Simulated assay, not measured.
Amino acid sequence: MAASAPVVPALPGARSASPAMIWSALAIVYVVWGSTYLAIRIVVEAQIPPMLGMASRFLAAALLLATFLALRSGAGRLKVTRRELLGSGVVGLLLLAFGNGAVAIAEQTVPSGLAALLVAAVPLWLMLLRVGGGERPRVLTWIGVLIGFAGAALLSISGGDTSAKPLSVAILVLGTISWAVGSRFSPRLGLPKDPLVATTYEMAIGGTAMVLIGVLRGEPARLHLGAVDTKGWFALAYLVVFGSLLAYTAYSYLLANAPISLIGTYAYVNPAVAVLLGWLILSEHVTTTILLGGAVVVLGVALVVTAERRPAVATTSSAAPAKGAGAPPSE
């Protein structure tokens, strides 16, 4: 689960672009999505309630994106059908309100690096959903899943060596499951064909749901704008501009121009970026257990990626496009 990216349908068109552009976009996804875990941690440490903070992030991004689309192409571009609106709403709830929201709530006690490592298990949940749908993965895929879950279990019990609370870890795991479910079924929900429009509605609906959840959690009573320091506001602005706009644009470009097996490498590069930034900037305590568990998760995901990308070698350039931005290479 990238902590900041909504699921959108792949852009139409041929997958042809310069290697420099592809790798530039991929670098943005690697670094920015990996850094959002750090930014979320800074936001919640600045006494911004998690659900209201993330709600303001996605609502602001949705407003900016909608304004841009309306000014560039006219307000008619934002018109969607009832089914498209409903599909966007479901994705917004599963990925943003429940998925990203769980990350924000958990990071009140879970270090950003550990959170990213746990989220790296999303491709493994996706594989189990595929099995539930009647698919029969390869033996190597199963090996990767078992190794990945062993790593996730190791990370889950590492809370005794950090400030992480077991309940926070459990909330985070539930969030990854929600993200996986949304990623798996988003292609069947009839999302708007225009990915920018789909993202606008996903963020608007997901952000609105976060406001409601925040109110139910009593967050407005804990929000004191005058107590929020400059770092907190800067981190929130970073999430809006870079996490919800720049990285998404780069990802949309990749979906239209790069193979999904390459795009999906973000699933195991983001955690490395998050752990490094958390250690460098927030002095987060990185234990041997966390490093070992993270390495095991990455190994498991890498095996799943290796197993699932093999059929793509035999496909032609006219193969069907990737299913969605939230889907890892196994999708």
Results as ranks from 00 to 15, higher is better:
70 A>V: 06
90 V>P: 07
228 V>L: 01
126 L>K: 05
72 R>L: 13
210 M>P: 01
76 G>K: 08
11 L>V: 15
313 V>P: 04
255 L>W: 01
328 P>F: 03
205 I>F: 06
95 L>V: 15
238 Y>K: 01
184 R>N: 14
318 S>D: 14
91 V>M: 03
291 L>A: 14
65 L>W: 05
104 A>K: 00
99 G>F: 12
173 V>M: 11
21 M>F: 10
222 R>T: 13
129 L>N: 04
268 Y>R: 06
212 L>M: 13
94 L>Q: 12
132 G>C: 07
193 K>R: 12
92 G>M: 05
7 V>M: 13
77 R>F: 04
286 V>I: 15
236 L>E: 09
225 L>D: 02
30 Y>D: 06
99 G>W: 09
228 V>P: 00
86 L>Q: 09
64 L>R: 01
52 L>W: 00
164 A>R: 03
322 A>E: 09
98 F>K: 07
13 G>D: 06
26 L>A: 11
295 A>M: 12
319 A>N: 08
274 A>R: 01
125 W>F: 15
310 R>N: 07
190 G>F: 10
216 L>K: 09
63 L>Y: 08
122 V>R: 00
314 A>K: 11
260 I>C: 04
181 V>Y: 14
264 G>H: 05
192 P>T: 03
5 A>T: 15
211 V>E: 05
52 L>G: 02
48 I>C: 04
131 V>L: 11
8 V>D: 03
306 T>N: 10
60 A>K: 07
62 A>T: 02
308 E>Y: 00
28 I>C: 11
8 V>I: 14
244 S>M: 03
150 A>H: 01
57 R>W: 08
308 E>M: 12
75 A>F: 11
270 N>W: 00
263 I>N: 09
242 F>D: 09
56 S>M: 15
250 A>C: 08
213 I>M: 14
237 A>E: 05
309 R>C: 07
287 T>E: 08
198 A>C: 15
310 R>E: 15
64 L>Q: 02
39 A>Y: 01
268 Y>G: 00
7 V>I: 12
321 P>Y: 04
41 R>H: 12
7 V>S: 14
179 W>P: 00
267 A>P: 04
200 T>S: 09
319 A>H: 12
103 V>P: 08
88 S>K: 01
280 L>N: 08
167 L>G: 03
71 L>R: 12
3 A>P: 14
262 L>N: 06
251 Y>E: 09
261 S>R: 13
331 E>W: 13
281 I>M: 15
185 F>S: 04
105 I>W: 12
253 Y>C: 04
97 A>V: 02
141 T>Y: 08
171 I>G: 12
79 K>C: 09
186 S>P: 05
199 T>W: 06
58 F>K: 00
88 S>I: 10
299 L>W: 02
75 A>V: 14
212 L>N: 03
26 L>Y: 15
109 T>E: 07
78 L>P: 02
42 I>D: 01
230 T>H: 13
302 A>Y: 11
95 L>A: 10
87 G>Y: 02
199 T>R: 01
95 L>H: 11
299 L>Q: 03
153 A>E: 08
217 R>M: 10
223 L>S: 01
140 L>I: 12
